[in-house]
Amino acid sequence: MKTSGNTILVSGGGSGIGLALAQRWHDAGNTVIVTGRNAAKLESAVAGRDNMHAHALDVTDAAAIAAFAADIVAQFPELNVLVNNAGIMGYEDATAARDLSTADDMIVTNILGPIRLTDALIDHLAKQADSAIVNVTSGLAFVPLPKAPTYSASKAAMHSYSVALRVQLEGKVEVIELAPPAVRTDLTPGQSTREGYMPLDDYADEVMTLFAQQPTPAEILVQNVLPLRNAEANGSVPQVLAMLASL
């Protein structure tokens, strides 16, 4: 993936990791489009930034995704990078029957959302030079957080999807997986100040350094996520899982 000269669409770009990376990509000389459901956050994200644009989108709405894709390609025909970042996380107690609406929402947002948005844009991206799809997963794709089973499963699904998509799109569209560790954002209540979580700016800076490597790694993995990513290979899953269960 080029470091500059792209037109990049970042879903969930109004806050957290999406916002931090969108603004850094903009600073590096890219045209950036941020989407999300919160119009006020989107407008704040692009304020004072030429060539950074806000467009509302609810990735849980299949019809809205299709209409949005047609509109965004018409407005930005040079669009060549899609960053599937929008996601939600909730904790669940699965020890007894419960309301599954939170699980439903995570599956639609975290799995169907990026699949639908990718599908809506793939014909366009496949025709562009230097095109790429970046799927934001999680270290929890590799070792689950027991109190967040559906979230962890959704990210494991997107890891698998990214691996398969990379094979299908070889030579047409670069597929990159970005798997964050625990980062100080507002993804869950209190997370933005939680002890032991990686500061957002530090995370974004390290990610940008990894994206600058040539060729771009298929997986963007900061040092803090390596214990989870490598747990299965080095036989430490039980220990890492026990650590996560204690959180």
Rank of each mutant, 00 (worst) to 15 (best):
A212T: 04
A132I: 03
P181V: 06
A96H: 15
T95D: 13
Q223C: 03
V225T: 09
A141I: 00
A148M: 01
R116W: 13
K127N: 06
L125T: 05
E170V: 03
E174S: 10
V167Q: 05
G190P: 07
A129L: 00
P114W: 14
N110Q: 14
A97R: 14
E206K: 07
T188C: 10
M106S: 15
T216R: 11
A156R: 02
M106G: 15
Q214W: 03
L169A: 07
E174P: 04
V183Q: 04
V136C: 15
N110W: 14
A103N: 08
L228H: 07
L145W: 12
A103S: 14
F211G: 03
Q191T: 05
L187R: 01
T95I: 08
Y91H: 06
L169K: 02
A120V: 00
V167G: 06
V167K: 08
L200G: 11
P217V: 09
D104R: 14
D93S: 08
Q214G: 07
I133K: 09
T95M: 06
N224I: 07
T150G: 09
Y151V: 07
V175P: 10
E206T: 08
D202Q: 13
F142I: 01
V83G: 06
Q223K: 12
D123Y: 02
G90L: 10
S160N: 15
N224D: 12
Y91A: 11
A103G: 15
A204F: 02
T209E: 00
L187A: 02
T95G: 05
Y91N: 08
M198Q: 11
V83N: 09
A141C: 02
P146R: 04
N110P: 13
A182I: 00
E92F: 10
D201A: 15
Y197L: 12
Q128P: 07
D119G: 11
Q223A: 14
